[in-house]
């Protein structure tokens, strides 16, 4: 009895969703599936996704959006299936929660003739997506590494905080190591701070107990920078070393903008990449602008001079 009711409900939704599409030739629906806001970066990503959708709905009245956030891969698959079945989407923008489990469902969406934009994490089968938008992890490590190489002298000591052990973290660290190779910079230690403030605080406290001479810290993430800076302040060694984080958290960008000597620069890995993906997908639907292919957003260096253009005071991240 109950199950029959659910099917009835779904049929009504399909009918409702289909009606305007039939009545108005030029209207499109774009489905957006992203992970839910469980930590700072994803919080920023959710914010930029919502902001982009609001902006596009105001600009193009013929566009309609369905936003779904998922806490795990299984829920994301359900969301995507629901979008196809009940909302009759014309395009899907998806940031796969995990590559493997999302590949087959997204492939099915593609085979149904729907435009697919994949963001940040690739699918495990190449060639499914029409458009791939992503940040640049290799560039992220390289830009930071080059800054260290050019601003430190031979024999200077640095410590590195790594993220959660993942391929993404390895790509960044490998690129960083390659960029500082031959510069004579001495990497004293690398430990995992798991992109977490508290863990980074503890790791940095121990680095400070262990090493008397540290000239710089690559904390590789702005959440970790917060913990690192606090540990340095506790040890009273603010004047000895500077810290380079990454991602572009608003509090850190603000301090760079204000010329904080402890935070000379930051390297972006923008959560706003989701906005690029949604905008480009929308543009492809409403105009003849070609948008298929791969779009890699370069990791940029944030300096006191250009910090203002990376500062989003309303974003939660």
């Amino acid at each position: 009895m109950k199950r029959r009711d659910i099917f009835k409900g779904a049929a009504v939704v399909v009918a409702l969703a289909a009606t305007p599409a039939l009545a108005q030739d030029e209207s499109y629906t774009i489905g957006v599936a992203i992970p839910s806001a469980t930590h700072g970066f994803m919080g920023g990503l959710n914010y930029h996704a919502q902001a982009a959708i609001e902006r596009l709905e105001a600009t193009y009245p013929q566009l309609d959006f369905v936003l779904a956030t998922a806490g795990d891969a299984g829920k994301m698959v359900n969301d995507i299936e629901d979008m196809v079945a009940t909302r009759d989407i014309d395009a899907l923008v998806v940031l796969p929660f995990e590559s493997e489990p999302l590949t087959a469902p997204v492939q099915a969406v593609k085979e149904a003739g729907i435009w697919v934009t994949v963001v940040d994490r690739g699918l495990s089968v190449p060639g499914i997506e029409d458009l791939y938008v992503s940040g640049d992890n290799t560039g992220f490590g390289k830009v930071a590494g080059e800054y260290f190489a050019s601003h430190l002298n031979e024999g200077d000591n640095i410590v590195v905080l790594r993220g959660i052990p993942t391929t993404l973290d390895n790509e960044r660290v490998d690129a960083f190591n390659a960029a500082i190779e031959g510069s004579g910079i001495n990497v004293l230690d690398m430990q995992h701070g798991n992109w977490n403030r508290d863990d980074a605080f503890n790791v940095m406290q121990d680095f400070l107990s262990k090493y008397d001479d540290i000239d710089a810290v690559w904390s590789a993430d702005d959440d970790m920078s917060i913990g690192v800076l606090e540990a340095i302040a506790q040890a009273g060694r603010e004047d000895e070393m500077w810290v380079v984080g990454g991602a572009g958290m608003k509090e850190i960008i603000k301090r760079i903008m204000d010329g904080d000597p402890q935070l000379p620069v930051d390297v972006t890995y923008p959560p706003a990449q989701i906005a690029s993906a949604i905008e480009m997908t929308a543009l492809g639907l409403v105009s003849q602008t070609p948008v298929s292919g791969r779009f890699i957003i370069g990791s940029q260096m944030v300096t006191p001079e250009n910090a203002a253009q990376f500062y989003f005071p309303d974003s939660p991240f």
């Binding site: 839910s36 700072g40 919080g43 920023g44 959710n46 914010y47 959440d223 509090e251 939660p316 991240f317």
Partner: peptide, 11 residues
């Protein structure tokens, strides 16, 4: 707490 922080951080 995630909801209160809007997915970000409460400072």
């Amino acid at each position: 707490v995630t909801w209160l922080a809007d997915g970000g951080t409460l400072s």
